[in-house]
């Protein structure tokens, strides 16, 4: 029923009818209830508070500056910037939410300080030829899925003054291995018997769909491994397609059913650097984590490593979709447990 399929969302630990309902709800609202998305994001305290703190605690950077808010949504970041002393803020968003944002800005008496423009960054005409600071909350699931990073980079190249600032300016993708036997069986094994029929052809499809979900820290059997960092001052759109080697150190003897990925965000321009993580070890964010199930189950021992290559590229068919490939190899002296393989995934 949804037109614009979001990655499968479910409540990881309640694998029953309730998760099906939650999923459908998410689908429905992601597809065509705009406000639901904004409410979810504003309620994501880790996200919104990090931005607020990064802006409020750095009034000296914002004072009398012209600020561009890329993908401004309900304009919450724009209003933070005004409160921090900005001379003027320009908020740009393609969505009709901009109409609501105008009402909100008006309700808060900031209409003279904030200019809101609906349209593509490439097409709108800004009231200032250059801006001193770009603020944007552009991150998607797995950092890059349906992300607006390319729009931020366009704005940077066209409008940011030399030595201008970007909030945030650093994003790092992390990976780890998890024990997830029960849920993998529930999620993938489901297709073995559907009303008495063999549905195993859908197992393959299910394995190619990364799961956006909250992972219990207790399930994580390895140390986190930083795979790639994007520096928003220097990164280019071409860098969003990448191939990076990774090494994950096993922390305890366990099974590994899946590789998970998340990202950390940093505002390094701040007087006191501010960062937040979307990992399993910290507070919930609406980005959750992304779970990539492996074809095999790895039996790992403390001190061993899982190595491989993470490849990400926008899909040729639809550039909003991501084609992700993860190769993996368990490095162990025990030849019975040696394993290697590759998983091919699509976020769409």
């Amino acid at each position: 029923m949804a037109h614009n399929a979001a990655p499968v969302e479910a409540n990881h630990k309640a694998g029953d009818a309730i998760s099906a309902l939650a999923h459908s709800e998410a689908h429905y609202f992601n597809s065509y209830n705009h406000h639901g998305i904004h409410e979810e994001m504003l309620k994501d305290e880790v996200r919104t508070r990090s931005y607020r703190d990064a802006i409020y605690q750095n009034g000296h950077l914002f004072k009398d500056k012209v600020v561009l808010d890329v993908g401004c949504g309900t304009a919450i970041l724009s209003m933070f910037a005004v409160k921090a002393g900005a001379k003027h803020v320009i908020g740009v968003d393609m969505s009709t939410i901009i109409e609501k944002a105008k009402e909100i800005v008006e309700a808060n008496g900031m209409s003279s300080k904030i200019t809101l423009l609906q349209g593509k960054m490439e097409e709108v005409e800004l009231p200032y030829p250059k801006v001193d600071i770009i603020i944007s909350e552009w991150m998607g699931y797995f950092l890059l899925y349906e992300s607006m990073m390319d729009t931020v980079l366009y704005a940077r190249d066209k409008y940011l003054v030399k030595d201008g600032l970007i909030f945030p300016d650093k994003a790092t993708i992390f990976m780890a291995g998890i024990e997830d036997g029960e849920y993998k069986e529930e999620k993938i094994g489901f297709w073995d018997n559907v009303w008495g029929f063999d549905y195993t052809p859908l197992k393959r499809t299910a394995l190619t769909e990364p799961l956006v979900d909250t992972v219990d820290i207790k399930a994580v059997a390895t140390d986190p491994s930083a795979v790639i960092t994007f520096d928003l001052y220097t990164v280019t759109v071409a860098d969003l397609a990448f191939t990076k080697e990774y090494t994950i150190n096993v922390r305890r003897s366990d099974f590994v059913h899946a590789i998970i990925a998340w990202f950390d965000i940093e505002f390094s321009a701040c007087h006191k650097p501010i960062r937040f993580s979307t990992g399993p070890h910290t507070k919930y964010t609406h980005w959750k984590q992304t779970v990539f199930y492996l074809q095999d189950v790895l039996t790992v021992e403390e001190g061993e490593t899982i190595t491989g290559v993470l490849t990400n590229k926008p899909s040729e068919k639809n550039h909003r979709d991501l084609d992700i490939k993860i190769t993996y190899r368990l490095n162990t002296e025990d030849m019975h447990r040696q394993a290697e393989g590759e998983g091919v995934y699509k976020m769409c």
Partner: peptide, 16 residues
């Protein structure tokens, strides 16, 4: 997910 739901808005045209 980002603040913008522009993708939602733009996909509307596709389903007509």
């Amino acid at each position: 997910m980002s603040d913008s739901d522009s993708d939602v808005a733009s996909s509307v045209g596709d389903i007509i």
